[in-house]
């Protein structure tokens, strides 16, 4: 709720920084391939990114992949020279140059990520992705951009395209990220594409004043992205979305990782014991 106060300072002319975190867990994407495959989703996302860049000339974008066992920047990367060798340099006269640069980099970096199967094989927990790491990187990146921009012209926000279920081991680190985002006034939007609801990310959206959407019709991915997540922070003041559902605030106990309503809290170390 704290984030709502800050909307008063948002201006129509502000530039927007969109940090897009794509959950690229290949095992789960394969499962959802019938309704929406990763390839198709990526095509939708690239159109979405281009739309974001097209809205204002000084809009910025960053894309981070949250993979199994690793999270990585897809765009921007520090030395893109290596890339230009692989992709064809031909200038397409029908395409805005900036769109091409972003699209090419995202696609080729994503390819690199998928070709590297060694980390994937060695990492034990294949059901989830490194969403906490990706969020931390996103916050560091936004911090850098906000620091460089002295007049506070750039308004950042984070959008997570999530498919994997929550991993209880990431609870504390995700919570830490949520509180720092709250402190800096960065809303975290969440789009849940596949599998059941995620409690952690739902809390993230709720606490930072971002939006949470569970994708009902996968074929209309792009349309949902455009309507729900494209509007900048200024426009959102005038947009009315369906009301928030119930947010689950119950805690998980440290001993059995079960969700509880009443528990015991140690005064020194926070350890919950199971309900009476």
């Amino acid at each position: 709720m704290n984030a709502l106060k800050d909307t008063a300072t948002v201006n129509e002319d502000d530039a927007n920084l969109l940090v897009l975190i794509i959950d690229t867990n290949p095992l789960i994407w394969t499962k959802s391939a019938k309704s929406l495959s990763l390839k198709e989703a990526l095509r939708h996302l690239l159109v979405f990114i281009n739309a974001h860049l097209a809205l204002k000339h000084d809009n910025e974008v960053a894309v981070i992949a949250s993979h199994i066992g690793v999270s990585k920047f897809l765009y921007p990367i520090p030395n893109p020279s290596r890339l230009s060798e692989n992709t064809d340099q031909a200038v397409d006269s029908n395409l805005y140059q900036r769109f091409k640069v972003v699209n090419d980099q995202v696609i080729s970096n994503m390819k690199d990520l998928f070709e590297d199967v060694s980390t994937l094989n060695s990492y034990p927990d294949k059901a989830s992705s490194m969403i906490a790491g990706a969020l931390s990187m996103a916050l560091c990146y936004t911090n850098r951009i906000m620091r460089a921009d002295e007049i506070g012209h750039i308004k950042p926000r984070i959008l997570i395209i999530s498919i994997s279920p929550d991993s209880p081991y990431q609870y504390i680190s995700i919570m830490n990220c949520i509180f720092s985002a709250q402190k800096l006034g960065i809303p975290i939007d969440v789009c849940k594409v596949h599998s059941e609801e995620t409690v952690f990310l739902k809390q993230a959206a709720h606490l930072t004043g971002g939006r949470y959407l569970k994708l009902q019709i996968p074929q209309g991915f792009l349309q949902f992205l455009m309507i729900t997540f494209l509007p900048d922070r200024f426009t959102r003041n005038y947009q009315c979305l369906p009301g928030e559902e119930k947010v689950d605030f119950s805690a998980s106990c440290f001993c059995h990782k079960k969700m509880i309503d009443i528990g015991f809290l140690s005064s020194i170390r926070t350890v919950f014991n199971l309900q009476i």
Binding site: V70, S71, T119, M130, A132, G133, L139, N143, S173
Partner: peptide, 17 residues
């Protein structure tokens, strides 16, 4: 500074294996 004062997470530890 940001990691130690605000986030309290090491991005490296969380993003690599």
């Amino acid at each position: 500074v940001f990691v130690h004062e605000v986030i309290h997470n090491c991005p490296g530890c969380l993003a690599t294996t």
